[in-house]
Design a protein around this nucleic acid. Structure first.
Lengths: 122, 122
DNA sequence: CAGTATCCAAAAAGATACTG
DNA sequence: CAGTATCTTTTTGGATACTG
């Protein structure tokens, strides 16, 4: 048997890190899962998820660079912009599911065992 | 019909956020995947993954609070402390796998399409 | 050895006013 | 409306010296 720690894991570690770098922030998955429902305009997103325009703008740019959302300028008056999730963005579903399932499992594990402490989230 | 954005998604969003809060930092999954191989002492971990003692200490405390690792003081001279991954910690494997798989997929998607930009990680 | 204390840098997030 | 500019705060990570 071999030493997994830094041989076989090298590529795996990087891949895991990649994913976390891309969708691991506070807003990325919130935005994406919101867009799964249906496309939104900039301000709709801002309102619905409660995020300031500066942050939202940055997050959407990041997502667009990684081809997870598309940005479409609509020729209206005034101009509106629609953001949609891409097919590639939708491949994150397995990730989201895994995160959600484990989160639920963890709540049971932690809350079932010790009640007063707050090891979870906030 | 109902407004999915903040009704049906509430629990799911929270669960996803929980997981990211718990293992989403720079080191948590690195530490855990290292410990899957075999248990380590404090300084071994510090050396192997290249992390400063202050950060490592904090990360291990977080992990212990969430029952992902156990801390065992060994009655040696001088004292040594061993950290091991728990069974609960090992249930993160599905999460890690999902993150890794998507990271690999994403590299193909991005690198296959556009070569010069660096939308991935660093 | 295992960890804490102190100090510091960088990144992430947020409030808010402003522009085309 | 869709953003950007500016400023501030919070969080995160890190170097390093020190203690039991």
């Amino acid at each position: 048997m071999k030493n997994l720690t830094s041989s076989e894991c090298t590529g795996a570690h990087r891949a895991v890190r990649d994913t976390l770098d891309i969708v691991g922030g506070k807003w990325k998955l919130v935005i994406l899962t919101t867009l799964i429902d249906k496309e939104r305009r900039f301000k709709e997103l801002a309102r619905e998820i409660g995020i300031s325009p500066r942050i939202l703008s940055k997050e959407l740019q990041d997502l667009e660079i990684n081809k997870l959302v598309t940005r479409t300028v609509c020729d209206t008056r005034p101009i509106t912009v629609e953001y949609s999730i891409t097919e590639h963005g939708q491949t994150l579903e397995k990730v989201t599911t895994a995160l959600r399932d484990w989160g639920l499992t963890h709540r049971k594990e932690i809350i079932g065992t010790q009640e007063s402490l707050t090891p979870v989230t906030g």
